[in-house]
Write a protein that binds this DNA or RNA. Structure first.
Lengths: 214, 214
DNA sequence: CGGCAGATTGACCCTCATCAATCAAGGTGG
DNA sequence: CCACCTTGATTGATGAGGGTCAATCTGCCG
């Protein structure tokens, strides 16, 4: 997508990139800053569905639905590149392979959500936090940043909302990991001292008992 | 999709319709019977991602990913209509509007999973079971069957796997609902006596407190 | 008739939510 | 520049909601 030009748009922290129910009119490539996507249901529940950083594409779910299916909000000042639907349609007409790429993006979104479902459905709090940290680490690394030292762009409450935990639980487990010297945490600053031990936290749960027995 | 002909295929209970990682080669319309889709992760976790009945389409996630991203297994004897990828491509070439329909199906899949994420991330066990029953009820009704009396095609364990609960919890809560005379349950047979009370179970949770206060 | 998979129920315990107090950091206005 | 206030984070005490372990029970199928 990087060769695709488009309108730039600057956002301040807290700004909405798009809102739930609004007509789908564009995809957004995050150029700088980071965002959260939030889902809200008729009965007043609200849940963070993901955090998104530079290089990722937002609004994909609107592709097939014609409306955005949640809110996207800037976690810090940032900039996005807007790719209007019209442009997209034109591009697809000239470059049919792009079509496949769009399908792939939707499928990727499904994959991402599946992973989260497994996390929410079968992991204990420690495992969820470990997965969260490892995921961030890996994404930072793939952008050329340090895999072991980074700044969290979101609050404990937002982390908890994503992971199905309360903010106190998030805080407690981060503290516990620190006490065990696997990480260092001070407010939003994170140091991962021992990524391997963090990996070991995931997967020694009882959910894997039968596999171990087999 | 109903006008689209295709190869029929019969399956016995327990048969795999497709398997995780297999090359995507077709979509499947469920013609009779019912299926579960299961996700398995590298670290040995297994989770049911959905139950599917006549009229629904399976394999959608393979559309963009080129491989099936989970298993689909028959819960009872059944029959599907197979729509090979080639046929699909040909159809799209002659009928470009179908393209949009495929996007819509992918978006629908995302919607379905989002709902499940909210359930897994923020609902208590009673609410999850109520949502599950109401969802089944509504789907039965939309197929012309009774909305208040139907047969579960899956075990307690499979229900639990979908909802992020243990089978004992599923059993207990069904029994509790029965004791409260909202439903009747005998093995796989379900009667919903008071759908409204079932609806009321969902959403009086604390997750909605601030909404009530506002 | 016997055996087995699935369901129910009970007793116990552990994880995480809840309630609450305190602390740290930043932003704002005087 | 400092005092104040707000927002976010930490930590403790307590309890409830489910998980775990185990014993029956009920159909169903061979």
């Amino acid at each position: 997508m990087s060769r695709v030009g488009g309108q730039r748009r600057r956002l301040r922290r807290g700004d909405y990139l798009y809102r739930y129910g609004a007509q789908f009119h564009a995809l957004f490539g995050v150029h700088a800053g980071s965002f959260k996507t939030v889902l809200l249901t008729e009965d007043g529940r609200e849940q963070v569905t993901g955090f998104h950083m530079a290089g990722e594409v937002l609004g994909v779910d609107g592709l097939g639905a014609d409306v955005y299916s949640g809110d996207a909000i800037a976690l810090e000042d940032g900039e996005v590149i807007e790719i209007p639907r019209d442009t997209l349609d034109t591009l697809v007409r000239h470059e049919p392979l792009l079509q496949r790429e769009l399908f792939r993006m939707l499928a990727g979104e499904i994959q991402r959500e599946r992973a989260l479902m497994v996390l929410l459905g079968s992991m204990r709090a420690e495992e969820r936090i470990a997965v969260f940290l490892l995921n961030l680490s890996q994404r930072m690394a793939s952008r050329g940043y340090s895999a072991t030292r980074f700044i969290l762009r979101m609050t404990r409450e937002e982390i908890g909302s994503l992971l199905g935990l309360k903010l106190e639980t998030v805080s407690r487990i981060l503290s516990r990991f620190q006490a065990e010297k696997m990480i260092r945490v001070h407010n939003r600053e994170i140091d991962l001292y021992e990524i391997d031990r963090l990996r070991a936290v995931v997967g020694r749960s009882d959910a894997r008992r039968d596999e171990a027995a087999a």
